Simulated assay, not measured.
Amino acid sequence: MKKAGASFVVKRIYDEPADDDGCRVLVDRLWPRGVSKERASLELWLKEVAPSPPLRQEFAHMQERFADFRAQYEAELEQNPAVGQLLELAAKHPRVTLLYGAKDPEVNHARVLQDYLQKMTS
């Protein structure tokens, strides 16, 4: 299911929603602290696409574990039916914003997911 032109971007859920966010999807398994459902302004909370709890706990957002985490999470994504839901959204929306709660804007699962989805749609 390839769709040229579909764009996935990542953004912290704590950042203000913007008009150019397109379809906003929370991709964390846990709801972020201090964010109301109204402020989140989501189209979908797709917790099923997040890393499995054991993988998330093993990674613990530690930069030195990121390469191993990336490989394991990509392997999980290969078997995850929720990826199909994101690809369907990309077919309907020119931009899908993947929202996450982690503090580090580079070392987090949403970046891995974005890269994975971009490969699938290009």
Rank of each mutant, 00 (worst) to 15 (best):
residue 62 M to C: 00
residue 88 E to W: 00
residue 89 L to V: 10
residue 61 H to C: 13
residue 64 E to Y: 12
residue 52 S to V: 02
residue 62 M to F: 00
residue 59 F to A: 08
residue 37 K to W: 13
residue 42 L to H: 14
residue 85 Q to G: 02
residue 53 P to D: 06
residue 56 R to K: 09
residue 46 L to V: 05
residue 51 P to M: 09
residue 62 M to V: 07
residue 73 Y to R: 06
residue 57 Q to F: 04
residue 94 P to R: 15
residue 78 E to N: 10
residue 85 Q to L: 10
residue 60 A to G: 11
residue 56 R to L: 02
residue 50 A to W: 02
residue 69 F to L: 03
residue 64 E to F: 12
residue 61 H to V: 12
residue 33 R to H: 13
residue 84 G to N: 11
residue 54 P to Q: 09
residue 35 V to R: 06
residue 63 Q to E: 15
residue 92 K to Y: 04
residue 76 E to S: 06
residue 68 D to I: 12
residue 70 R to V: 14
residue 38 E to Y: 03
residue 55 L to D: 02
residue 81 P to Y: 11
residue 48 E to A: 15
residue 45 W to Y: 01
residue 66 F to K: 06
residue 71 A to T: 06
residue 88 E to M: 02
residue 53 P to F: 04
residue 51 P to Q: 09
residue 60 A to P: 01
residue 84 G to Q: 11
residue 44 L to F: 03
residue 87 L to F: 09
residue 45 W to R: 01
residue 35 V to M: 08
residue 74 E to S: 10
residue 69 F to T: 06
residue 84 G to R: 08
residue 78 E to D: 14
residue 91 A to K: 07
residue 56 R to W: 01
residue 87 L to W: 09
residue 58 E to F: 11
residue 32 P to N: 14
residue 73 Y to W: 02
residue 96 V to F: 04
residue 54 P to M: 12
residue 84 G to K: 10
residue 91 A to S: 09
residue 92 K to W: 05
residue 67 A to F: 13
residue 73 Y to D: 01
residue 75 A to S: 13
residue 50 A to Q: 01
residue 90 A to D: 07
residue 47 K to L: 00
residue 59 F to D: 06
residue 84 G to D: 11
residue 32 P to W: 14
residue 80 N to V: 15
residue 62 M to P: 00
residue 39 R to C: 05
residue 42 L to P: 05
residue 57 Q to L: 09
residue 61 H to Q: 11
residue 67 A to C: 06
